[in-house]
Design a protein around this nucleic acid. Structure first.
Lengths: 221, 221
DNA sequence: CTGTCATTCAATAATTACGTTGAATGATTT
DNA sequence: AAATCATTCAACGTAATTATTGAATGACAG
């Protein structure tokens, strides 16, 4: 790092933040952390990366001020530094969505009938919950569910979905959600349940956005 | 680039956007483009970079979908792809501001008495303009002014400020603005005018944000 | 058609980022 | 105190980015 004038130094700082987000695995770590604090090897397992590598990526994010680390006994728990990080992540997603035809193609190719699965907005869902008209299911793994979920939501991990079908009623609308707008699980859950004749829709995004909107979140199993 | 599953491909796309912003000079180019469309060598001159280098950075930004290029005769004019790019840029700035003590230090060190120069919000300024209580001065160079400026603003480029002092009145409040929150020029203008006994404040940000807020913009000299 | 100007391309050398490995640290348990 | 577990560090080879240079393209004027 050579000597710079203040203007360049400022741009260099901004660039540092962007650069920290300029890696697929680090973005995935951010999205995981958006669900709640995690230890290094919990993250490594989720993301499927070697522990040392995960640790390095996390330190990279920490240096950029995007996440914070806190020691708890043997573990080091990382969390998002604050809500603005989520906003930044969302901004990147919006730009990528609008600008890159590529993203649309990927999304369409993977999520197939994405358009046919009209998403429920947060506002609509809160209203429906108030009226007691819907069953809300959280299709994330139990550990993520325990750290926070929508009020009254049923935890039906995608892996258990088939087995849990008897718990679900055909006569009520079901709304499924998971980690966020691009989380695959709720799409898959909707597909499975539709095939079984359930009336089911997705929440437009996931728990982090719900929390960020200042809406109520329950914890515990 | 190896074969990836769709989830990884999606993160790779997002990372591509972030990576494109992960370079100080490219951020500076973005901020320049936020003022309006520019040719390659206009940008190169502004930013102080060799033309070939500037061209490459612009292409990098174009590949990421952040800017668009349009041929006009011998020139190629680049512009921001859309408003979401500005939002993204602002998000980065917010995160960097909040998270990095470093940025605060740079800002304080450079802009000295930044705190003493209370900024005027857009809302407050529109109100003041409506009441006819303020003189608004745009301290950017004339070429940027011509491409768009606040309604009724006087173009007083920083370089001409001393010479233009007679045009300014002591009995009205003056509000100065330039390119954005971190643009140096309006700070310097305020400092100069304060020293001469003018009652003067800065607009909290610059023209791009004004335009993004959907407020009226005038063009022409 | 030729010359000029703005821009892009191609090739290079220097720097920086990346993932992997195995050893080192720090905290807890026995 | 020794063993164990989670995390970090250090070092290395490989790959990707970057700035620079000079040549190539494309558009326009004469």
């Amino acid at each position: 790092m050579s000597i710079r004038n203040p203007k360049q130094a400022l741009y260099a700082q901004f660039a540092g933040v962007a650069k920290a987000l300029g890696h697929p695995q680090r973005l995935e770590l951010i999205e995981q952390l958006a669900q709640g604090p995690r230890s290094v090897d919990a993250l490594a397992t989720k993301v499927g990366l070697p522990i040392a590598n995960t640790s390095q990526h996390l330190q990279h994010l920490r240096r950029a001020g995007l996440v914070t680390a806190e020691r708890a006994g043997k573990f080091v728990n990382y969390s998002l530094a604050d809500d603005t990080v989520l906003t930044l992540f969302a901004s990147i997603r919006v730009v990528a969505e609008r600008q890159l035809a590529e993203v649309e193609r990927i999304v369409r190719g993977y999520f197939q009938a994405r358009d046919e699965m009209e998403a429920v907005t947060r506002a609509e869902l809160t209203e429906r919950i108030r009226e007691g008209l819907v069953t809300v299911i959280d299709v994330r793994p139990p550990d993520e569910f325990a750290l926070g979920h929508l009020p009254g939501a049923l935890n039906v991990p995608l892996s258990d979905l088939e087995a849990r079908l008897p718990d679900l009623r055909h006569d009520r609308e079901i709304v499924a959600y998971c980690r966020g707008a691009y989380c695959v699980m709720s799409f898959e859950a909707v597909a499975v349940l539709r095939a079984r004749g359930f009336k089911v829709r997705r929440l437009e995004d996931g728990l982090p956005e719900w929390r960020a909107a200042g809406l109520q979140v329950e914890t515990g199993p």
